[in-house]
Structures are given as C-alpha cells and as structure tokens.
Write a protein that binds this DNA or RNA. Structure first.
Length: 185
DNA sequence: AAGTAGATGTTCT
DNA sequence: GAACATCTACTTA
C-alpha cells in the first residue's frame, strides 16, 4: 500500500485495513482487528497535544507510531489523515500467515490463535520496538499489502476495548467471526 | 468460566 | 500519586 492509502479519516482507514497483510521482516499475517483514534476525541493519545511519546502521530501519514502500553507491551499504530493532525489506527490482531516459528519463539506460545490476538501480542510476535518508531510503512522492514479484493472482507464494528473515554464511538473494526480476534463482537 | 492481582514506563493532576 | 489504547498467572467454582 502507498501513503495515499493512509490519508483518510482514521475510522475509514481502520475499516479499509481489515484483510490487508502486515509483515515486519517477513513475519506477520492478515489484519483482522483495528481501532481508530483521532485527536478530536478524548481516548486518543494525541487529544491533549504533542508530547515526546506521540510525536510520530503528528508527522506524515503512512508511518509507524509505536508506544509502550501499561509499561510492558509494545503496540503498533499506522499514522493516518494529514501531517499535523494526530490520528492513527491501532493494529489489534492478525491471522498469522508468515514466520509462525519466529512468532511462536518470541511469544513462548504454541497456540496459533493466541500469537497475535491483541495489540500487545502483535507487538511481541512481530518484534516491534522503539527501533520501529516513526518508520515509513512502504519500506523495509515493513510490508503492508492491500486486501486481495478491497472492501470484500466481512467487516464488523463496535466500541473500542480497554478505554474509559468516548466509549460510545464504534471505532473498533474486525473481520466478522474470525477466530483470531482479541475478542468477539 | 469468571474474577483478581501483579508486572511497570509515560503522562497527567 | 493515579491512570493508562494490556497480558499472564493464579484462584475460585
């Protein structure tokens, strides 16, 4: 995918990413769950302005925003909209297709369904660290491949997980009934 | 199956 | 200090 694919509103990009393939150093799979975040809405890291942590989300779209969740987990986002806005899409779950032995080793987990079912698990399985912070998504080590037939994945939406603000926004998107979701819809 | 505790870095009050 | 875009291990049933 090209940087133009990330220039839409965060919920539109989040929906369009379901069914796309994400690889980091050749390891990854098909995106089955995402969440949209936007500076205009209080659950977003960017809502209160730019900080050292969220700086990448105020940069150009089509780049990686990586943050440490609960002091423990590395989570990966795709920056979207336009530079300066502070919007992004959290990658919450994949259906593993490439590099399963690497992911099993990194996760210490044999069950394929639990390799990438949650944003912290995706980060660990793909080896995401601060070294990926701000990197463009259209060059190594990243590969983001569009869905085989755009818009054909059976997408469902609902409230985002693990937030206390703006819970009414249905900005979580997922491949309906996939066994690789972090939670059922 | 469901609930709880505990791990811990960054940001905010 | 408290909250937080989370996960695991352990308890209780």
């Amino acid at each position: 995918m090209t940087s133009a694919d990330f220039q839409g509103q965060a919920p539109d990009v989040a929906r369009a990413l379901i069914g796309a393939t994400l690889l980091v150093d050749g390891v990854g799979g098909v995106i089955v769950e995402t969440e949209a975040y936007d500076a205009s809405e209080p659950a977003a890291h960017t809502h209160r302005g730019e900080t050292p942590r969220n700086r990448a989300m105020f940069g150009p779209p089509g780049h990686a925003y990586v943050y440490r969740s609960y002091g423990l987990h590395w989570c990966l986002n795709f920056v979207c909209r336009e530079a300066g806005h502070g919007a992004g899409v959290l990658i919450r779950a994949l259906r593993p297709t490439e590099g399963l032995p690497d992911m099993r080793q990194r996760r210490g987990q044999q069950d394929e369904r639990l390799l990438c079912a949650g944003p912290g698990r995706v980060g660990q399985a793909l080896g995401i660290t601060l070294a990926h912070y701000g990197l463009p998504l259209d060059r190594a080590p990243f590969q983001v491949l569009a869905p085989a037939e755009a818009g054909q994945a059976p997408v469902r939406s609902g409230p985002r997980i693990g937030i206390s603000k703006a819970q009414q926004l249905p900005w979580r998107f997922g491949w309906a009934d996939s066994p690789y979701l972090s939670r059922r819809f």
